[in-house]
Design a protein around this nucleic acid. Structure first.
Lengths: 232, 232, 232, 232
DNA sequence: CATGAATGAGGTTTCATTCAT
DNA sequence: TATGAATGAAACCTCATTCAT
């Protein structure tokens, strides 16, 4: 999951439509899928810039021109990969967030979703962790709403947990969202780049650590509090 | 601080040598600085791919060819920006880590260094948070060792904190490092892309939250622990 | 009427056959007409190169493939526009030339035909005055014979006028044909490109001026004649 | 000489500057000339659309990129050919028009300039008679002012001739200009496309015919006049 | 050391045309 | 006969890099 996607005041025409690929009437959905799959593979392995449309087309066993029947251009292809993947993830995320489970469990489930989604496919991971961060314009156009919705899911769970007394009263949900996302994102990047078989931690470990905190019980916070009063 | 973009099996030349710019004997260090500064500005505003060597040269008031007297190529220029910035940061980081202050304070200081460094210059932030994540080869060659050292600084502080009883015995330092770095990184990305004046949290807030944890005192962990035993 | 664009030694297939569109037996003549009309409109407004077959097909309310049932290719479509328009014009021109009217009147009528034909429709004018001059191969194949016949009509009238004593004995018919055609053509181009409502002269004015000549009675010719004897 | 170039209300930014090629400081004028010459040759023989920049570059013995150092793009290259050729012609035309010779002689000299200029080089002729008429935009940008000035030279001579009594009082100069230009233009097109060695007429013959008129002395005008009164 | 003119590789995208239905 | 999805060829131009001065 790309994290970028902010930049408040860029005008964008038809947000949804702009994202939509150019699908000919009666389009062959199987062909479309083949192209998307080939794109993930190729973008993931070669990187967006090094990926050649000719290569994607060949991998999808279609002519080069056919790619442009289904997608506006190369960037659009990347955008659609993001968009549809995110939609799948969000679909699952929404239903997880609808469950009545304790907040901690919901958080774990959402983070697990994140880690599983990216962590299950190195090519896709490469697209999400590397390629998608390249282009502000791209991110602007494609990832805004989907990612924001994912953040909102996390924030809602956090707020519910605070309200139910499961989480600290003075926990700042927006900051906590960034911590959760940033930590998971970093774990995935590390996994991707290290070449290890599995990420350094799973959702339970990560969320567990975040809930419990780093400090030894009854200790660090007081120290920190004490120090804070002293001038630098 | 960018970290990403290693691809599994990219061959990379002699890391140290590759990092070294082509500095003619007696090169004008002032000119070199001007070029680097122009590069940060240009990469930051235009992005690496859109940045033109001609533009950087013009901004630095040197001829295009001169850039190549000081730097191997465009990618090298980006790499040197990273490398020298990181070296500055590491220098400070090392001295912070040498202090005898409590671990929590050291952590806060290191995170503060991270946030201040990136958060003080949008152009530089853009280079670190966006441009540097683009090129597998680049990061492979340039960022590995410096970034690893930064991670080691964090890890050392964490281990010291665990040893001193300041942090939980069962805290996993490698995971904690990723959490710290990932959260700070995400906060910076959010700040960069949102266009807000300041990041949503400073080092104290971030580290405070991480040390204390999300869960309400005496609550969530038990809940989480209990649930964990039940099959899904 | 376009005339140009022959290149010296272009091989050209069977001129007649090449001109013939691929008309399937029982083809719908109404559909054919719609396509031709759409072609004039589109070629005229967009230019040949910018005109898209898809656009012409859409304007004619047929499928793209259907265009190729009636016409060999895009160039053929342009050629047929020329050819059939010229045939209409020639039909009228032949009957004008068969009349027993004085040569001056016949000339005027023919020039009027030229000006009215092109001057009545800016799209058609654009095709004839601009687009048709573009393609050597095209004009080579399509326009030669029709245009030559038009020139012959003019030449016949001129010769008849000379024979009848209406025109100067030493008038060179071939030159006069080119003058008549070139002047009318230029007037039409000027009209087309100027955006004016009407051409700067009608057939009567043009032919009148050409018949009468520029020189003041009894003057310039002597001057010109005198000068001519001197060596350069 | 292209005849088109009208269209009143198209906005164009810096008319002169837009025409100007991109000349690097210290540009090699010899190289520039070689490229222009190669362009005339290639455009003339292949046509603008079929001409490949690679071909022009090879003919000029420069790298492809070098073409773009001297000229903005392919169209600009064509425009500069027109512009500089016209400037040469205009230079001569202006001095011819400054002479105190009789109007008929001046006209002949100007038409001769036109015929000699285009008629001396089939490649150049092809560019002027065919390629330059293709693109309204091109003509719009490049030929407007130069061609208009040429027309003005002709018009000035005509007006002077009328004033001096050399030409008919009621001669319409604007129409006469178009006749002169159109006739010469047509003669050149015919020559170009026919493959004949020389144009069908030289300036003296053409201007002589136009001054004297087609009609037999004392005849045709009366006839025409008489007929004109009768209803069609 | 510095210059900047010259080089030339490289790839997306369009769109005329085809052909299976 | 009609369709329109699929094809795939084709070339301009940019710009990082070099090298003669």
């Amino acid at each position: 999951m790309a994290h970028s996607a902010h930049r408040d005041a860029l005008p964008h025409a038809a947000p949804a439509a702009a994202v939509e690929e150019r699908a000919p009437f009666g389009a062959d959905p199987e062909k479309r899928r083949r192209i998307l799959k080939a794109a993930v593979r190729t973008f993931g392995r070669r990187g967006f810039h090094e990926a050649r449309i000719a290569e994607i087309a060949a991998a999808a066993k279609v002519a080069e021109g056919t790619v442009y029947l289904y997608f506006r251009n190369k960037e659009d292809l990347l955008g659609v990969v993001f968009d549809e993947s995110m939609e799948d993830v969000l679909e699952k995320g929404r239903s997880l967030a609808r469950s009545k489970a304790p907040a901690a469990e919901q958080l774990t489930a959402l983070v697990d979703l994140h880690l599983q989604f990216i962590g299950s496919d190195r090519d896709l991971a490469s697209v999400f962790q590397i390629e998608l961060r390249r282009s502000a314009r791209l991110v602007e156009r494609f990832s805004r709403s989907k990612l924001v919705e994912y953040f909102r899911l996390l924030a809602d769970v956090l707020r519910a947990g605070i309200a139910s007394g499961e989480f600290r009263r003075n926990l700042e949900p927006r900051l906590a969202v960034r911590i959760l996302f940033g930590a998971a994102d970093e774990i995935l990047s590390e996994w991707l780049l290290s070449g290890e078989k599995k990420p350094i931690a799973d959702a339970k470990q990560l969320v567990g650590t975040l809930l419990r905190g780093f400090a030894a019980p009854g200790d660090s916070l007081k120290v920190a509090a004490r120090r804070r009063r002293k001038p630098q």
